[in-house]
């Protein structure tokens, strides 16, 4: 096996509960290209967590404040695992990666950076992203990189809940009232142009082989399952073309700068400080 350094990660194996601290303490050093892959996964989770956190104390019901906070917290946990692991390649901490990289250094997809909009738009993004992540993580648990496999194993259980939450709401909004149907359909229409880029293969994935999951291979299962839930909700798959320019090579949304400006402001006012 080419990634011999992973054998020292004795505390981390699939199925054991892990924390970001465990990953750091485990001593595994991610090879450069594995770190770049982990960074993509971590950035997606971090951006979506940042978006969902906005809903806390603004949701339609108290129970939903709790549910959305829970999902945001899960995603933040995943982000911390992936960024901590990625950082081992470059001697950087999760916080150095989250707070001291500029816009063009992030590798998140455009979907997770989109505006929350109304609850329908947020749920549309949740549906797409949780269904995508489910297909991704259920394959990533077999990654030949033990740390990535362990993170995926932990995350998968949580993503199953995120998927259920989004699906339950899509049914309620699709089959609820005319107004709710109109809004969830509009939300799906708004988010759909950013679906294609989730399934875009690149040279990094080619190089990683069995360490990574090939995005194009997820598309058929994603499409079938999304079609089924939308059909049950009496909604249709939006007929919109993919938005041009989406890949993870540095093309990014207009919203990214705003998200980072807010997220990073305090940390950057006090460089070198601990909190």
């Amino acid at each position: 096996m080419s990634y011999a350094s992973h054998e020292s990660a004795t505390r981390i194996s699939a199925g054991t509960a892990i924390t970001a601290e465990d990953i750091r303490a485990g001593g595994a050093k991610a090879p450069e290209d594995v770190a770049r892959y982990a960074l993509q996964l971590g950035d997606d989770a971090l951006m979506l967590s940042q978006r969902l956190g906005w809903w806390i104390a603004r949701a339609p019901e108290l129970e939903e404040d709790i549910a959305l906070a829970n999902i945001a917290l899960d995603l933040l946990g995943h982000a911390r695992f992936f960024l901590t692991y990625a950082g081992t390649a470059w001697g950087r901490t999760e916080d150095e990666l989250a707070y001291f990289r500029d816009e063009e250094e992030f590798r998140s997809c455009r979907l997770v950076e989109q505006e929350n909009g109304d609850f329908g738009q947020t749920i549309a993004r949740q549906l797409i992203f949780s269904y995508y992540q489910y297909e991704l993580y259920r394959r990533l648990v077999r990654s030949t990189d033990p740390t990535l496999a362990a993170i995926a194993e932990k995350a998968l259980k949580e993503i199953e809940y995120h998927q259920d939450h989004a699906g339950q709401w899509v049914l309620r909004l699709g089959l609820g009232t005319e107004e709710s149907k109109r809004r969830i359909a509009a939300g799906l229409h708004y988010m759909w142009p950013y679906v294609d880029e989730l399934f875009h293969d690149d040279e990094l994935v080619d190089a990683l082989g069995d360490v990574a999951v090939r995005p194009s291979g997820l598309r058929a299962d994603f499409d079938a399952r999304i079609r089924a839930i939308l059909q049950e909700a009496e909604l249709s798959v939006p007929e919109v073309l993919g938005a041009y320019g989406g890949d993870r090579s540095g093309q990014f949304s207009e919203q990214r700068g705003h998200i980072l400006a807010e997220m990073q402001v305090l940390a950057r006012q006090h460089p070198g400080a601990t909190w």
């Binding site: 917290l73 916080d95 989250a98 707070y99 402001v265 940390a267």
Partner: peptide, 22 residues
């Protein structure tokens, strides 16, 4: 929550506000 200065603090604060809803 959106401006917490470290990811750990952000997670703790989010969990705390969630407790308050509970």
């Amino acid at each position: 929550i959106s401006r917490a200065p470290s990811l750990k603090r952000k997670a703790i604060l989010m969990a705390k506000v969630q407790d308050e809803a509970g």
